[in-house]
């Protein structure tokens, strides 16, 4: 019966538990290596070389060497991960979790604290 071709599929799926992921209630762990959002992992080791900003296809990253700040405009970021690969000091990381929605435009700024000059014995 050509009319009942889908019947098998429908009975099967009626017997199965729903395939819906109840998103905000149950969160799925993103797979390893998924590109969710770019984060500044450790600003302390950053040398402000600016390679990440230069390599960024959308110019979402601004690095200011004089102020020791690293800024990310999340509005522009296309989560390609180019900056994470290029960073010589391994400061940046790509997290699997996606970036959440926001209401106000803002630029994420990370400032490196000045290093205590005298306390370093080496």
């Amino acid at each position: 019966m050509p009319h009942l071709v889908i019947a098998k599929l429908l009975t099967k799926s009626a017997a199965r538990k729903p395939s819906t992921r109840l998103y905000p209630a149950e969160k799925r762990a993103p797979p390893k290596g998924a590109r969710g959002r770019l984060v500044m992992k450790q600003i302390e080791t950053c040398v402000f070389c600016g390679v990440c900003g230069k390599k960024c296809p959308t110019r979402a990253i601004a690095v200011k060497r004089t102020d020791k700040t690293w800024e990310l405009d999340r509005l522009k970021c296309i989560v390609c991960g180019e900056c994470v690969e290029i960073c010589p000091k391994d400061c940046l990381a790509m997290e699997g979790e996606h970036a959440t929605a926001f209401v106000a435009k803002k630029i994420e700024t990370h400032v490196q604290k000045p290093k205590p000059a005298a306390s370093d014995p080496t």
Binding site: C77, A99, A101, F102, K105
Partner: peptide, 8 residues
């Protein structure tokens, strides 16, 4: 615009 959803 009221809400921005990031990602690409």
């Amino acid at each position: 615009v009221d809400v921005y959803v990031p990602g690409c």
